[in-house]
């Protein structure tokens, strides 16, 4: 994982956006984030994967929206006024939206504060490490794995 190496070699803090999904706090590397928007009308796409709710229109661009809750095998989302869609760009040309329960804050983490899940370091894991921040724990999302086909049960 180029990202991990990148983190390992630099001592500078990396910024993560802290979000709540279900009862857990997750961190998403800020470099992936294109935009954060409020919940909006989602157009259902027939025969899509169950964790895709459909597509939304962000300034003329059509972006598929994924439920992290369903992807991670949690209960279905409950939408309220804290629900947000994070627009993520894993690649330059392809965007994807993540539905999260709440966006908390920006967290700065230096390498020392991250405990890498080295025990079973396969690239397919949704989480590449756990960050310690303010006494709490933040699961850091491995974005390329999250947007890949596979879901939590497999």
């Amino acid at each position: 994982m180029a990202d991990n190496k990148n983190l390992a070699t630099t001592l500078d803090a990396t910024q993560y956006i802290g979000v709540i999904v279900g009862n857990e706090q997750y961190g998403i590397d800020i470099k992936y984030i294109d935009n954060i928007v409020k919940m909006q009308r989602i157009t259902r796409v027939p025969k899509a994967q169950p964790y895709f709710y459909g597509v939304i229109n962000i300034r003329g661009e059509i972006i598929p929206v994924m439920s992290l809750r369903i992807k991670f095998g949690k209960d279905p989302d409950e939408f309220d006024n804290k629900t947000r869609i994070l627009i993520i760009k894993p690649e330059q040309q392809a965007a994807i939206g993540f539905i999260v329960d709440e966006v908390k804050e920006v967290v700065n983490l230096v390498d020392d504060e991250i405990e890498r899940s080295s025990a079973n370091q396969d690239d397919k894991s949704f989480i590449f490490g756990v960050g310690k921040h303010d006494g709490g724990l933040i699961s850091l999302l491995n974005i390329p794995a999250v947007v890949s086909e596979k879901d939590a049960k497999e």
Binding site: V45, A48, F52, E61, I62, P64, M66, A94, A95, I96
Partner: peptide, 8 residues
């Protein structure tokens, strides 16, 4: 428009 790369 395309409906995006990731969705089936």
């Amino acid at each position: 428009k395309s409906i995006g790369k990731y969705i089936n």
